[in-house]
Write a protein that binds this DNA or RNA. Structure first.
Length: 657
DNA sequence: GGCGGACTAC
């Protein structure tokens, strides 16, 4: 049995006599020997050795052998598109299989549309037309780029080429129509398939799950069972995720998911991770953790699922703990998704040191700053108080999408650079990037912090008419905030009363509304609203401030007695308050009007705001002139995920004395 | 001569 070693060159038959018609048996032997070697290659270096030998022995001019080498170079786990192209160019007369292989490689590569150019080359340069193998790859490319028109053209061509009824072609069309959002066409294709196979069903089930109709997915699954089609593990991934996503409709389905999972014959990392994610969606972190622990081979995707579940559900500290645990694992490489989720968790608690560590990790490992990573870095630096670093990241990238621009606008907004944020908003449009709902939230937030009332009102009017974005509740809340903060209380109340959408279960907006009623003396409205909040179970999210000292995050709630050093913290607070009063500080009593809750009233009068506690902890734990950065959890700026994002991050005070 | 489709995490 031939085997590879890194020390020894490969040994292949040496006689360059491939085309000698007198030795057919020897040639066939040589060819099949080489092909078996190709199949057992485990890295590019070995493959290149075989390639070299094949050229030397003349075996490369055999189209069949050459196509085998090419297929491995283009599709194996160590494939290299660059190298594969070179191999392809050396093949004198590529056959249909070879063309299809190249198209396939491009379709699942970073630039799927290149498979379309290869297809055009094939049609014009070779005698081969597309066949039933070609279309699924091309249609996959159309799905990757979500191009409905391309999908439709390919659909038409497939029908003309008489392969429209091929189940592989039809299944790829279902997938394509789903990813282009044309659900009707997907269903139409599905109904026309004569002999549906398990993949046809899977494409429909996962399509519905991904397009937000988990109920339809479960319905289809039942139909599939009634038609005696045996489910595969991919079916289960779709069904498990549908079960998790319908949690609000029927809690019992979670048990369905568990039963399904337990009786599954084939479990791979995807199924495990889906199960993990299902528990995480239900916020049953213990169960999610148990799934991770039971996984035979934990991969980075599973770790990411747990980290991002914590991060997205407002549990950034837990996310960071899991990340630290992940760092201790050997042989698991962090990827861009790990970094994005962790950076977002850093931003939520103000973990600047860890955020910096991740940034240097990115640089050290040459990880590409894609749009997600870039936005996450800008967001993290802004929230953690280092606006300059955020700007640096922003300037360092050549291409910026709407999220990158929005993150920078949001960063400027939370640092009070309203005019600059507006400039950025116009520059973004000069760069031909269309703003989205998140952009507007951040722009309004900038206006709010800088008192740019006219600008905000104008943009709010233009938002739908000129930009085609229907204002959401959070945008209305932003405008109320802009008006309220600038003292236009009557206007704010009128604005709220004229809102076309009712304020829904949004605690922040209720408090805001209540504050506005209170400021304008509408005490009756205040008590009505408070009753409404009590009845509907709404509570104001408690304000929480955090500060990072030597890489550890310390959190403070208002009136907090939990911190081990709280006595010293309160001592410092008294000292600061005395010193402030001695220097002529008088508390702004009109602010008390804003307070709607007795508890808060008490806290306010006793100076127990969480920010003050965090600042005082910073004062006793650091030496001047180190900056003290305090992060607050409440606010309206953000990425649209929720409204509990930290809003301000600033250098508050230099250490005193 | 042989090839292919559907699934998890930002």
């Amino acid at each position: 049995m031939a085997s590879f070693s890194t020390a020894q060159p490969l040994s292949l038959p040496r006689h360059p006599t491939f085309s000698n018609p007198n030795q057919p048996t020897a040639n066939n032997d040589r060819s099949s020997h080489t092909i078996s070697l190709i199949d057992r290659c485990s890295n590019l270096r070995q493959l290149k050795q075989i390639h070299a030998q094949m050229v030397r022995t003349g075996l490369f001019s055999d189209p069949y052998s050459a196509s085998k080498l090419f297929a491995i170079s283009a599709l194996s786990h160590f494939a290299s598109l660059d190298y594969a192209c070179k191999v392809f160019d050396q093949i004198p007369q590529p056959n249909s299989f070879t063309w299809n292989t190249l198209i396939r490689a491009y379709a699942s590569g970073p630039d799927p549309l290149r498979s379309i150019s290869v297809f055009l080359d094939m049609v014009s340069d070779s005698r081969f037309g597309p066949n039933k193998y070609t279309f699924p790859f091309l249609i996959k490319a159309a799905a990757e780029v979500s191009s409905l028109s391309l999908g439709q053209s390919l659909h038409g061509m497939a029908v003309k080429s008489a392969v429209g009824c091929d189940v592989f072609v039809a299944n790829s069309l279902i997938h394509c129509y789903f990813s282009c959002g044309d659900l009707d066409s997907a269903c139409k294709v599905f109904t026309t398939i004569q002999e549906k196979d398990v993949v046809s069903w899977n494409s429909m089930i996962t399509g519905f799950v991904q397009k937000g109709s988990p109920d339809k997915a479960l319905e289809l699954f039942k139909k599939m069972e009634s038609e005696d089609v045996k489910a595969s593990h991919v079916t289960m991934v779709g069904v498990l995720s549908a079960c998790a996503k319908t949690r609000n409709l029927e809690f019992g389905r979670r048990e369905d998911a568990k039963r399904l999972f337990d009786k599954m014959e084939e479990r791979d990392n995807v199924t495990w991770t889906t199960m993990l994610d299902g528990y995480a969606i239900l916020e049953d972190y213990e169960a999610a953790r148990e799934v991770l622990n039971s996984m035979p081979k934990k991969d980075i995707v599973a770790w990411n699922a747990l980290i991002s579940a914590y991060e997205q559900n407002g549990k950034p500290n837990e996310a960071l703990l899991v990340f630290h645990e992940l760092q201790l694992q050997k042989n698991i490489k962090l990827n861009q998704i790990t970094l994005v989720s962790t950076l977002s968790a850093c931003a939520q608690v103000g973990a600047l040191e860890l955020g910096r560590w991740i940034h240097s990790y990115i640089k050290k490992h040459g990880i590409r700053l894609n749009f997600y990573v870039t936005s996450a870095l800008i967001h993290m630096y802004s929230k953690c108080g280092d606006l300059e670093k955020a700007r640096e990241v922003f300037s360092s990238v050549e291409r910026r999408d709407v999220f990158v621009w929005s993150a920078m606008i949001g960063g400027l907004a939370m640092h009070g650079c309203g005019n600059e944020a507006l400039d950025m908003f116009y520059k973004m449009q000069e760069a031909n990037v269309k703003p989205n709902g998140v952009t507007f939230t951040n722009v309004f937030c900038a206006c709010s912090h800088s008192g740019l009332v006219d600008e905000a009102e104008l943009l709010f009017k233009e938002m739908e008419s000129s930009y085609g974005i229907v204002p959401q509740e959070k945008h209305y809340a932003c405008i109320v905030d802009v008006l309220g903060r600038s003292g236009y209380l009557e206007k704010a109340v009128k604005f709220i009363e004229a809102m076309p959408i009712p304020p829904s279960a949004n605690d922040g907006a209720h408090v805001l509304l209540s504050n506005i009623y209170a400021k304008s003396g509408k005490w009756e409205s205040v008590s009505e609203l408070r009753k409404h909040m009590r009845v509907t179970g709404l509570k104001k999210e408690p304000g929480c401030s955090s500060i990072e000292i030597d890489g550890t995050i310390h959190e403070f709630l208002s009136g907090d007695n939990e911190h081990p050093m709280c006595e010293k913290v309160y001592g410092k607070l008294n000292e600061v308050m005395e010193s402030l009063k001695a220097n002529g500080y008088e508390p702004e009593m009109s602010q008390v009007l804003q307070i709607i809750d007795e508890e808060e009233m008490k806290e306010q009068s006793l100076n127990l705001h969480s920010e003050k506690l965090a600042i005082c902890y910073g004062l006793i734990s650091t030496e001047a002139p180190k900056a003290i950065r305090v992060i607050k959890n409440l606010g309206y700026s953000g990425n649209g995920k929720n409204h509990h994002q930290p809003m301000s991050a600033r250098c508050v005070l230099p250490s005193s004395n």
